[in-house]
Structures are given as structure tokens and as C-alpha cells.
Design a binder for these strands. Structure first.
Lengths: 200, 200
DNA sequence: GTCTATATCGAGATAGAC
DNA sequence: GTCTATCTCGATATAGAC
């Protein structure tokens, strides 16, 4: 018999606490998440939580690190897909997302207590640094292969692409509608299209 | 004798409370801002605050509305500047900003209690709807004048431009450095350059 | 490992004097 | 209009029994 994966019942308490914290951090942020709320969602008692973790910051660190790892793995899977650079970027931008929930890592950027703590902040910084570098690599590759024009700056364009994603989430939440996210993505892809070797 | 503008001392209590709330909302968000913190920053007592406002949501509404108005006025001033569409968009994107503090309106998008309240949420929604429309108008004008190619979609591009800004703030905060913001802006302007009539 | 009791403090407000 | 007193909860733990 194997345990069911993806559900919180059936795994150990420590695991349930981390997953509950991840959800709450995503929904309400660090300041808006209380130990009590975490415990209730995890179905764990006060004593349990403080047995496994030293406190809220410790638990948040475990949650943030895991969320950052997952984001990275999901993105990397997209970048390794076959196709031209533009096709891979397009696949990444258009992959299915829970747009209205926003980015679980980008969100932390607005949490003063997270950004004030170097340890909590580190995974956030690392995630975006990696993402920008990785997309720049894909674009540079496309340029070397002659898919993209020389006028396209890989590093700057990569940062723009990540910014469009993060900003797209903001606009979608503001409108309470995922359409602005899709439109922002369409807009940048259309701009990129003018830099393909045949079009440019 | 005229009063000094831009300082909190010398204006009435209600005004100081609103300005303090605006600052705290920007720095710490709605959930992270307590009535006590507002009062201390404003130099006002408990009783004073509850005399002028019914509570934290009421005060936040006044603060959010004013912040939204100011953002709109500042943006509109940029759009009315002389020059081509691209020059006006460039001026808007490159105008001086306190990048690491982020966007005081975009920030609210991550505040669950703000987004859950239709009244607090409205100014946020309106601000971005207006901004996207306004930039789309500028771009459409540039296309009509023949400054921009017909391949450029004003509405989608406008949403992309706003997303780059909002995402640029996120990346700058993640890196604790304003450089990613500038790079994201450079990237999108470079992409737009390929759509100018002479270049495209 | 988990539970319950207890403790401190701040959030968010109400009441009524001045 | 402003001040102080008071109130109720929840946030965030710690202590010690089981």
C-alpha cells in the first residue's frame, strides 16, 4: 500500500504544518498568517507546532524554501521543452496558472517582515535572480541560432519577460479577472515577434 | 504667512491621520497597519482618530482614494507632455520613482482584506483600468500619426507596459536594488523601438 | 509527539470625562 | 475635538502533564 500524495491527511504533522503554511502565506502573506490559523488548517495542536518548529519564522522559512524550489522546478521543465527560443518562452508564459491567486514568491516581496529578515528574504531573491538568468540563456541561445535578431538584448529582455508575468498578476488581481494577465502576455509576445529573424 | 506644504505638522489632525495612513499602507500594507501605529505617526490620540473616522477601514478608504488620485494626476501630467507617442511613454516609464518602495496602489492588490472589501477595492481597480486605457490612447494616437506600425496592438501593448512597471517594482524589491526595474523598462522600450515606423 | 493551561502583549474599539 | 480608562480578542509563545 502506498500513501496518497497531494492530500494533507495521511502525511505526518510536520508535513501538514508546512503545507498549511505555504497555502496561508500565498493567500494572506506573512503578516496576515497566524500560528493559530496554521494549526487549524493542519489539524495540529499548539504543542505539536512548537515541537516541530521553533516558531512562526522557522515554519515560514521551510514553507518559503519549498515554494521557491517548486517554482524553479516547474519553470525549468518549461525551458527544457523542445522548440525555438520564442516557442519555449511562449510555452512558459502561456502555461496554465492560477492567475488570480498570484505568484506565491512574488507576493512575499510585499511582506515587510519577510524582506526585513535576510534569511526569509534570500529564497525570494535567489528565485528571481535564477529566473532572469535562465530566460536570458534561452534568449541568447535563440540569438546564436539566428532565430532572434542581434538587436535583442537577452538580459534586459529576460527581465522584461519576468516583469510582465509579475505585473500581469498584479493587474489581474486589480481587475479581479485573469484577462489583463493574458493581455499583458499577448502584448509582450507580439513585441517579441518583431524581433524574430524573419520578421525583424 | 503661508503654511509649509508637505510636512505633517501645521495641518489639522484629520489630515495628519490620512497622511500617516497613506505612508503606513505603502510601507506595511493594510493588515500590517494598526490604528495605534497610525495615531503615533500622526501624533494624535485614540479619541481623536475615532472622532474623525469610524475606524480603520474608513481611514484606509480616505487614504487609498487620495493615493489613487495622486497617482493618476502624476501619470496624466506625463502623458500630456509633448513629443511622439513613444517619447511620451518613455518619459512616463523613466520618470523618477522611489522604486524600492514599490507602487502604493499595486501593493494593495496583495492585501487580502482590501481586495475582499468592494469599497476599498474599487479605487485600485479603477486606477489600473484608467491607466491601461490612457496608455492605449497614447499608443493608438501614435499609430494614427504613423509613428508606430499597424502591427502594434494598442490595448495589449498598454497592458504590457503597465505590467512591466508593476513587475519591475517586484523584481527590484526582490533584489533589493532598483537595477532590475530599470532593466525591465529598457527591455520593453527596446522591443517597442522595433515597432516604430522607421525601424519596423 | 501531543495536549492543555497560562502568560504577555497588541489590535481594534467603546465610554465618558474634560 | 481630544484625552484617559476600560474591554474583548487574537497573536505568539512557554510550561509542564500525559
Amino acid at each position: 500500500m502506498y500513501r496518497l500524495v497531494g492530500t494533507l491527511s495521511g502525511v505526518n504533522t510536520s508535513e501538514r504544518l508546512i503545507e498549511s503554511t505555504r497555502e496561508l502565506l500565498w493567500e494572506r502573506g506573512y503578516v496576515g498568517t497566524s500560528p493559530k490559523a496554521i494549526q487549524q488548517r493542519a489539524g495540529a495542536g499548539q504543542g505539536s507546532m512548537y515541537h516541530h518548529f521553533s516558531g512562526k519564522p522557522d515554519l515560514a522559512l521551510a514553507a518559503i524554501r519549498r515554494t521557491a524550489e517548486e517554482l524553479r522546478a516547474a519553470a525549468e521543465a518549461g525551458f527544457r521543452a523542445p522548440g525555438t527560443a520564442l516557442q519555449r518562452i511562449t510555452a512558459y508564459l502561456r502555461r496554465e496558472r492560477d492567475v488570480l491567486r498570484g505568484c506565491p514568491v512574488g507576493r512575499l516581496t510585499q511582506d515587510p517582515d519577510v524582506m526585513a529578515d535576510p534569511v526569509l528574504r534570500q529564497p525570494v531573491e535567489d528565485t528571481f535572480a535564477w529566473l532572469r538568468t535562465r530566460i536570458a540563456e534561452v534568449l541568447a541561445e535563440g540569438r546564436e541560432r539566428g532565430e532572434l535578431t542581434a538587436a535583442l538584448d537577452p538580459a534586459a529582455t529576460a527581465t522584461t519577460v519576468v516583469a510582465v508575468l509579475q505585473g500581469g498578476y498584479v493587474l489581474a488581481r486589480a481587475a479581479n479577472d485573469s484577462a489583463p494577465f493574458d493581455q499583458a502576455v499577448d502584448g509582450v509576445l507580439n513585441l517579441l515577434a518583431a524581433h524574430t529573424a524573419d520578421a525583424g
